[in-house]
Protein backbone atom coordinates (compact mmCIF):
# COMPACT_ATOMS: atom_id res chain seq x y z
CA UNK A 1 0.00 0.00 0.00
CA UNK A 2 1.43 3.42 -0.96
CA UNK A 3 1.81 6.00 1.76
CA UNK A 4 0.27 9.42 1.29
CA UNK A 5 2.30 12.52 2.20
CA UNK A 6 0.41 13.63 5.31
CA UNK A 7 0.47 11.22 8.20
CA UNK A 8 -1.87 11.69 11.09
CA UNK A 9 -0.10 11.77 14.44
CA UNK A 10 -1.06 8.80 16.56
CA UNK A 11 -2.38 11.06 19.34
CA UNK A 12 -4.56 12.95 16.86
CA UNK A 13 -5.78 9.61 15.49
CA UNK A 14 -6.66 8.32 18.96
CA UNK A 15 -8.43 11.59 19.76
CA UNK A 16 -10.50 11.41 16.56
CA UNK A 17 -11.36 7.78 17.21
CA UNK A 18 -12.56 8.77 20.67
CA UNK A 19 -14.70 11.67 19.35
CA UNK A 20 -16.06 9.50 16.53
CA UNK A 21 -17.27 6.97 19.11
CA UNK A 22 -19.23 9.72 20.87
CA UNK A 23 -20.66 10.98 17.60
CA UNK A 24 -21.71 7.52 16.42
CA UNK A 25 -23.53 6.72 19.64
CA UNK A 26 -25.23 10.13 19.78
CA UNK A 27 -27.08 9.63 16.50
CA UNK A 28 -29.29 6.84 15.23
CA UNK A 29 -30.45 8.08 11.84
CA UNK A 30 -29.20 6.04 8.88
CA UNK A 31 -28.29 9.22 6.99
CA UNK A 32 -26.21 10.51 9.90
CA UNK A 33 -24.38 7.23 10.18
CA UNK A 34 -23.84 7.30 6.42
CA UNK A 35 -22.31 10.77 6.69
CA UNK A 36 -20.03 9.62 9.50
CA UNK A 37 -19.00 6.66 7.37
CA UNK A 38 -18.35 9.06 4.49
CA UNK A 39 -15.83 10.98 6.64
CA UNK A 40 -14.04 7.73 7.55
CA UNK A 41 -14.18 6.73 3.87
CA UNK A 42 -12.47 10.00 2.86
CA UNK A 43 -9.68 9.10 5.33
CA UNK A 44 -9.51 5.58 3.84
CA UNK A 45 -9.36 6.88 0.27
CA UNK A 46 -6.76 9.53 1.18
CA UNK A 47 -4.62 6.77 2.63
CA UNK A 48 -5.21 4.68 -0.52
CA UNK A 49 -7.09 1.87 1.20
CA UNK A 50 -9.54 1.69 -1.70
CA UNK A 51 -10.60 -1.96 -1.38
CA UNK A 52 -11.33 -1.73 2.33
CA UNK A 53 -13.26 1.52 1.84
CA UNK A 54 -15.38 0.02 -0.95
CA UNK A 55 -16.09 -3.08 1.16
CA UNK A 56 -17.27 -0.97 4.10
CA UNK A 57 -19.42 1.15 1.77
CA UNK A 58 -20.99 -1.97 0.25
CA UNK A 59 -21.78 -3.39 3.70
CA UNK A 60 -23.40 -0.05 4.57
CA UNK A 61 -25.53 -0.03 1.39
CA UNK A 62 -26.54 -3.69 1.88
CA UNK A 63 -27.51 -3.02 5.50
CA UNK A 64 -29.57 0.05 4.55
CA UNK A 65 -31.34 -1.88 1.77
CA UNK A 66 -32.10 -4.74 4.15
CA UNK A 67 -33.39 -2.25 6.70
CA UNK A 68 -35.79 -0.57 4.28
CA UNK A 69 -36.85 -3.33 1.91
CA UNK A 70 -36.42 -6.74 3.55
CA UNK A 71 -37.18 -6.17 7.23
CA UNK A 72 -40.62 -4.57 6.69
CA UNK A 73 -41.70 -7.81 4.97
CA UNK A 74 -40.48 -10.06 7.79
CA UNK A 75 -42.62 -11.26 10.74
CA UNK A 76 -42.66 -8.84 13.71
CA UNK A 77 -40.23 -10.53 16.12
CA UNK A 78 -37.65 -11.22 13.44
CA UNK A 79 -37.96 -7.69 12.05
CA UNK A 80 -37.41 -6.10 15.48
CA UNK A 81 -34.45 -8.33 16.38
CA UNK A 82 -32.73 -7.78 13.04
CA UNK A 83 -33.47 -4.04 13.02
CA UNK A 84 -31.55 -3.65 16.28
CA UNK A 85 -28.70 -5.74 14.91
CA UNK A 86 -28.56 -3.74 11.68
CA UNK A 87 -28.49 -0.40 13.47
CA UNK A 88 -25.57 -1.63 15.60
CA UNK A 89 -23.78 -2.84 12.46
CA UNK A 90 -24.32 0.58 10.86
CA UNK A 91 -23.01 2.29 13.99
CA UNK A 92 -19.89 0.18 14.06
CA UNK A 93 -18.98 0.70 10.38
CA UNK A 94 -17.62 4.30 10.61
CA UNK A 95 -15.57 3.43 13.71
CA UNK A 96 -14.30 0.16 12.25
CA UNK A 97 -13.21 1.78 8.96
CA UNK A 98 -11.45 4.64 10.73
CA UNK A 99 -9.84 2.23 13.20
CA UNK A 100 -8.74 -0.13 10.43
CA UNK A 101 -7.04 2.59 8.37
CA UNK A 102 -5.53 4.17 11.50
CA UNK A 103 -4.14 0.82 12.69
CA UNK A 104 -2.75 0.04 9.23
CA UNK A 105 -1.00 3.40 8.89
CA UNK A 106 0.34 3.72 12.44
CA UNK A 107 3.27 1.63 13.56
CA UNK A 108 3.45 0.19 17.05
CA UNK A 109 6.48 2.39 17.75
CA UNK A 110 4.56 5.53 16.81
CA UNK A 111 1.67 4.44 18.97
CA UNK A 112 3.84 3.65 22.01
CA UNK A 113 5.88 6.85 21.55
CA UNK A 114 2.64 8.85 21.42
CA UNK A 115 1.19 7.12 24.46
CA UNK A 116 4.42 7.83 26.37
CA UNK A 117 4.14 11.50 25.40
CA UNK A 118 0.66 11.71 26.88
CA UNK A 119 1.96 10.00 30.04
CA UNK A 120 0.09 6.73 29.72
CA UNK A 121 1.16 4.23 32.41
CA UNK A 122 4.09 2.13 31.18
CA UNK A 123 2.34 -1.08 32.31
CA UNK A 124 -0.53 -0.38 29.90
CA UNK A 125 1.86 0.42 27.03
CA UNK A 126 3.79 -2.81 27.64
CA UNK A 127 0.56 -4.79 27.83
CA UNK A 128 -0.66 -3.21 24.59
CA UNK A 129 2.65 -4.00 22.82
CA UNK A 130 2.48 -7.64 23.90
CA UNK A 131 -1.18 -7.91 22.87
CA UNK A 132 -0.53 -6.50 19.41
CA UNK A 133 2.50 -8.77 19.00
CA UNK A 134 0.45 -11.73 20.15
CA UNK A 135 -2.30 -11.56 17.45
CA UNK A 136 -0.07 -12.58 14.51
CA UNK A 137 1.56 -15.21 16.74
CA UNK A 138 -1.87 -16.60 17.59
CA UNK A 139 -2.76 -16.80 13.90
CA UNK A 140 0.51 -18.58 13.14
CA UNK A 141 -0.08 -21.02 16.03
CA UNK A 142 -3.61 -21.75 14.84
CA UNK A 143 -2.52 -22.60 11.27
CA UNK A 144 0.35 -24.80 12.44
CA UNK A 145 -1.87 -26.71 14.87
CA UNK A 146 -4.60 -27.12 12.24
CA UNK A 147 -2.06 -28.55 9.79
CA UNK A 148 -0.68 -30.92 12.43
CA UNK A 149 -4.19 -32.20 13.16
CA UNK A 150 -5.02 -32.70 9.49
CA UNK A 151 -2.34 -35.38 9.28
CA UNK A 152 -3.54 -37.32 12.33
CA UNK A 153 -6.62 -39.50 12.51
CA UNK A 154 -8.21 -37.43 15.25
CA UNK A 155 -11.91 -37.27 16.11
CA UNK A 156 -13.73 -33.92 16.18
CA UNK A 157 -13.64 -33.87 20.01
CA UNK A 158 -9.91 -34.68 20.01
CA UNK A 159 -9.32 -31.88 17.49
CA UNK A 160 -11.26 -29.34 19.54
CA UNK A 161 -9.52 -30.22 22.80
CA UNK A 162 -6.18 -30.41 20.96
CA UNK A 163 -6.66 -26.93 19.55
CA UNK A 164 -7.51 -25.48 22.96
CA UNK A 165 -4.69 -27.32 24.76
CA UNK A 166 -2.09 -26.40 22.14
CA UNK A 167 -3.17 -22.76 22.02
CA UNK A 168 -3.02 -22.43 25.81
CA UNK A 169 0.28 -24.27 26.23
CA UNK A 170 1.84 -22.38 23.32
CA UNK A 171 0.65 -19.10 24.81
CA UNK A 172 2.19 -19.86 28.20
CA UNK A 173 5.46 -21.03 26.60
CA UNK A 174 5.62 -17.98 24.35
CA UNK A 175 4.96 -15.65 27.26
CA UNK A 176 7.70 -17.27 29.35
CA UNK A 177 10.24 -17.07 26.50
CA UNK A 178 9.21 -13.53 25.71
CA UNK A 179 9.45 -12.51 29.37
CA UNK A 180 12.97 -13.98 29.56
CA UNK A 181 14.04 -12.13 26.42
CA UNK A 182 12.50 -8.88 27.65
CA UNK A 183 13.94 -9.25 31.18
CA UNK A 184 17.52 -9.65 29.94
CA UNK A 185 17.05 -6.52 27.85
CA UNK A 186 16.01 -4.44 30.83
CA UNK A 187 12.21 -4.20 30.55
CA UNK A 188 11.96 -3.96 34.36
CA UNK A 189 14.04 -0.80 34.42
CA UNK A 190 12.01 1.75 36.41
CA UNK A 191 13.56 4.66 34.50
CA UNK A 192 11.28 6.58 32.09
CA UNK A 193 11.57 4.69 28.81
CA UNK A 194 12.48 6.53 25.65
CA UNK A 195 11.74 5.94 22.00
CA UNK A 196 13.75 6.10 18.80
CA UNK A 197 10.61 7.28 17.00
CA UNK A 198 9.97 10.94 17.62
CA UNK A 199 6.39 12.13 17.29
CA UNK A 200 5.21 15.70 16.84
CA UNK A 201 1.76 17.22 16.61
CA UNK A 202 1.81 19.14 13.34
CA UNK A 203 -0.35 21.99 12.11
CA UNK A 204 -2.02 19.52 9.76
CA UNK A 205 -3.01 17.30 12.72
CA UNK A 206 -4.65 20.24 14.48
CA UNK A 207 -6.44 21.26 11.27
CA UNK A 208 -7.75 17.72 10.62
CA UNK A 209 -8.89 17.40 14.24
CA UNK A 210 -10.72 20.76 14.18
CA UNK A 211 -12.46 20.09 10.86
CA UNK A 212 -13.42 16.56 11.91
CA UNK A 213 -14.77 17.64 15.29
CA UNK A 214 -16.77 20.41 13.60
CA UNK A 215 -18.14 17.92 11.06
CA UNK A 216 -19.08 15.42 13.78
CA UNK A 217 -20.66 18.20 15.84
CA UNK A 218 -22.80 19.41 12.92
CA UNK A 219 -24.02 15.89 12.20
CA UNK A 220 -24.91 15.30 15.86
CA UNK A 221 -26.71 18.67 15.96
CA UNK A 222 -28.63 18.15 12.71
CA UNK A 223 -29.73 14.56 13.33
Amino acid sequence: MCESKFKLDARAGLFLLFVLNFAVFSVSSVVALGLLLLWSAIYGIYKKYYTATIKFALVYIASVLANFFILPKCPGVIAISFAVLLIYALKILPIALFGYVFAKTTTLQELTASLRKIHFPESIITGLSITLRYFPALKEDYYQTRDAMKLKNMSFIEKMSGLVITTITRASMNIEDLSLAATVRGIDNPIKKSSMTTVHIKKGDIFVCLVSVLYYFLICKEF
Binding site: T107, L108, Q109, S129, I130, L132, R133, P136, M173, N174, D177, L178, L180, A181, A182, R185, G186, I187, N189, K193, S194, S195, M196
Partner: peptide, 18 residues
Protein backbone atom coordinates in the same frame (compact mmCIF):
# COMPACT_ATOMS: atom_id res chain seq x y z
CA UNK B 1 9.78 -16.40 20.74
CA UNK B 2 12.44 -13.88 21.69
CA UNK B 3 11.26 -10.84 19.79
CA UNK B 4 9.07 -8.30 21.52
CA UNK B 5 8.13 -6.06 18.60
CA UNK B 6 6.67 -6.92 15.22
CA UNK B 7 9.06 -4.57 13.40
CA UNK B 8 12.80 -5.30 13.15
CA UNK B 9 13.89 -1.68 13.75
CA UNK B 10 11.88 -1.48 16.95
CA UNK B 11 13.26 -4.83 18.04
CA UNK B 12 16.87 -3.76 17.56
CA UNK B 13 16.45 -0.69 19.79
CA UNK B 14 14.19 -2.36 22.37
CA UNK B 15 16.92 -2.68 25.03
CA UNK B 16 18.14 0.87 24.43
CA UNK B 17 14.64 2.29 24.84
CA UNK B 18 14.24 0.37 28.08
Amino acid sequence: TQFFHTNSNAEIVFGLEN
